[in-house]
């Protein structure tokens, strides 16, 4: 019995061998055919891909052109609107200050720049300020809706006393005030917590203003970059900054300041003004004189001070202890 079962196993084994060889051939043939098909398919896809890539290039070029056309259209519409407004407005513009004034002569037309470049400039601000969807207050307040916002007025953020005070006095963030603040933060808000020296390049400022403006709720309410949008900046002519103040005269003039500003430098309700760096003092007083800084008392006091008198005051206060 044992023998017959051994033979039976051997027969099955032989059949299996034949079958196995037959299967192996079939599989190799099939794979080669499949590879051909795949190779063809890859070739097709590669050709199609190149096609799409060139179409995408064309699309973005068209989109860019469209955007340019839209900008031109918007500018043209604005120009038309301005012309209409000008035509309907018979009242003369407020008298501009004399162009011969060395302080005013530097004032230049201010326009919104390129928001994309502004975003690059904004990179240095991001360590403290967030902007865009989901932005929250960090070291500095978030900047969504900054245009038209009263200075120091964003709920929940703890501002410097000076910033809060400027807000109470009426400082609102608009094209010209933001521009002045970005140029020299401490000239506009003396003891702002914003530890930033300022952006000297007017182009950087106009670019960053264009970028910030994209995140304000009502950009249509913001003065457009039309040629009529003027902003006076606190740019002082070198000869004004170079005046060496007469400290004796400054001491006399300063006696008037001390009725309100305490000589010991305390700042309850009214800011301290002692030990102020000369140039900051000069710039701040000119900003009051030109009514960029708000506050009626300071505007009035600065209004009657000559360049020499401002320099004299600055020289005196710089040396006070």
């Amino acid at each position: 019995m044992a023998h017959s079962s051994g033979l039976f196993i051997s027969v099955i084994g032989g059949a299996a061998l034949v079958l196995g060889a037959s299967y192996g051939w079939t599989a190799r043939e099939f794979r080669a055919a499949e590879l051909d098909v795949l190779t063809d398919r890859v070739g097709q896809l590669e050709r199609s891909n190149a096609d799409w890539a060139s179409k995408a290039d064309q699309t973005s070029a068209l989109e860019a052109r469209l955007s340019e056309l839209e900008t031109e259209l918007s500018a043209a519409l604005q120009a038309a609107e301005d012309a209409k407004q000008a035509a309907m407005q018979p009242v003369a513009e407020p008298v501009q200050e004399s162009a011969t004034d060395p302080v005013i002569a530097d004032a230049s037309a201010l326009e919104f720049g390129d928001p994309a470049r502004g975003e690059e400039v904004f990179a240095q601000c991001r360590s403290c300020h967030q902007i865009g969807q989901g932005a929250t207050d960090r070291i500095g307040p978030h900047l969504n809706g900054i245009f038209g916002r009263r200075a120091g007025a964003h709920d929940g953020f703890r501002y410097s006393e000076d910033m809060s005070m400027m807000g109470s006095d009426g400082l609102t963030w608009e094209l010209d005030t933001l521009n002045a603040y970005l140029e020299n933060p401490k000239a506009l808000v003396s003891r702002t917590r914003m530890n930033f020296a300022g952006l000297d390049d007017p182009q950087d400022r106009s670019n960053i203003l264009a970028y910030l403006r994209q995140f304000s709720a009502s950009p249509q309410n913001i003065p457009e970059a039309a040629p009529t949008a003027q902003a006076r900046e606190v740019e002082l002519a070198p000869e004004v900054l170079a005046i060496v103040g007469d400290t004796d005269y400054g001491e006399y003039l300063a006696s008037e300041c001390k009725t309100c500003h305490q000589q010991d430098g305390s700042d309850q309700g009214i800011p301290a003004i002692t030990q102020w760096p000369t140039e900051d003092f000069v710039v701040a007083m000119h900003a009051y004189k030109r009514k960029i800084r708000p506050h009626p008392v300071m505007q009035m006091m600065a209004n009657r001070l000559s360049d020499e008198e401002i320099a004299a005051l600055a020289a005196y206060f710089a040396q006070t202890e």
Binding site: M165, D169, K258, T259, C260, Q262, Q263, Q268, G269, I270
Partner: peptide, 16 residues
């Protein structure tokens, strides 16, 4: 702010 300013002024003028 105007009221708070007046308090500052009071301190200023009386020390003056």
């Amino acid at each position: 702010a105007t009221y708070e300013e007046s308090i500052g002024w009071y301190e200023g003028i009386t020390s003056d």
